[in-house]
Amino acid sequence: MQDDSQSTVSEHKHSLLDGWNSPPNFVTYIRILLVLVFIVLYARSGAWGQNSLGMRWTAATLFIVAASTDKLDGYLARKYNQVTELGKLMDPIADKLLIISALVIASIFGELWWWATILFLLREIGITVLRFFIIDRGGQVIAASPAGKFKTLFEFTGLAMLIAPLRSVGSWYLPLTQGIIVLALVLCLYSGGEYLYGVFGKRR
């Protein structure tokens, strides 16, 4: 999964809309649609799935599918040489829409601390806004750093475990899930710092 670890400002490249209808980008569009369905199902299932375990399991499945299909669009883009600036931009936005919706709903349900969700949101939204600014100024969106990739991996793993109604498997399950999410938060803040340094630090 691509993330927003670093970016550099460069000379004007191709139009942002170049290749908008490429197969990898259509995979990203479908993933965004899956996210919207996920939001509805997760919200309607209730805290810990108390309203409907079936909806909760379906929401968890869609979450995993939406996260996993990111690898498909990346594979197609590289295989057929269809990497586009729009794809580089929309891919992390799809990730963030999925992550942010899961974090907010989980906190509303009391399944996750609000302080963690707020820190995630500040970083994710702030970096995304900065990405738009850089692209608007003719900057180039580049791939994730190792910290950003690990952050995304732990983020999706922890949230998938939280959404899946599996608390009853043992008293260890929820603390393990929370620990993975906290690790993702640490990596989230660290990779955000890397991104900011890559944008502003090298200009000095």
Rank of each mutant, 00 (worst) to 15 (best):
S168A: 11
I134K: 07
T117H: 02
K202H: 14
W20E: 04
I108D: 06
R56V: 06
W48D: 11
D70E: 06
L36E: 01
G158L: 03
S15G: 14
L36H: 08
Y75C: 05
R137A: 15
H12I: 10
S68W: 06
L162I: 07
P165K: 04
T58Q: 09
K71M: 11
Q140R: 15
C188K: 00
R204K: 12
L36K: 09
C188R: 00
L62V: 05
V141C: 11
G201H: 07
S22T: 14
T177I: 07
S145V: 05
Q6G: 05
Y29V: 05
S5G: 13
H12E: 08
I181A: 02
Q50Y: 11
A59G: 10
T8F: 10
F200Y: 15
L153A: 14
W57R: 06
Q178W: 13
Y29H: 07
P165V: 04
G198Y: 02
M1G: 09
M55N: 11
E11S: 11
G138F: 15
L176N: 06
S107K: 01
V35R: 00
D4E: 05
N81C: 06
R31L: 08
L103N: 00
L53V: 15
A144L: 07
G148C: 04
S7I: 03
Y173F: 14
P175A: 02
P175H: 10
I99N: 00
Q178E: 11
A106Q: 01
G148L: 00
L185E: 01
T84H: 03
S52W: 08
G87W: 00
S68R: 02
D95T: 05
G74N: 03
L189D: 03
Q82F: 12
K71A: 13
A147V: 14
R131L: 06
R78K: 12
Y80R: 04
E85D: 12
F26V: 05
E111Y: 07
V83T: 14
Q2G: 08
A143V: 08
D136T: 14
Y197K: 07
S145N: 12
M1F: 10
D91C: 08
A77H: 00
D136K: 15
P146I: 11
V141L: 15
V182H: 10
W115G: 01
D3M: 07
V199W: 05
G198M: 05
K71F: 13
E85H: 07
T61K: 07
F109G: 01
K149L: 13
A147H: 04
A66D: 03
F38A: 01
R78L: 07
H12W: 09
I134G: 03
I32S: 09
E85G: 09
K71Y: 13
A94N: 02
R123S: 09
L97R: 01
G201F: 13
W114I: 12
N51T: 11
V104S: 02
D18Y: 15
V9Y: 02
G201A: 12
I105T: 01
L86Q: 00
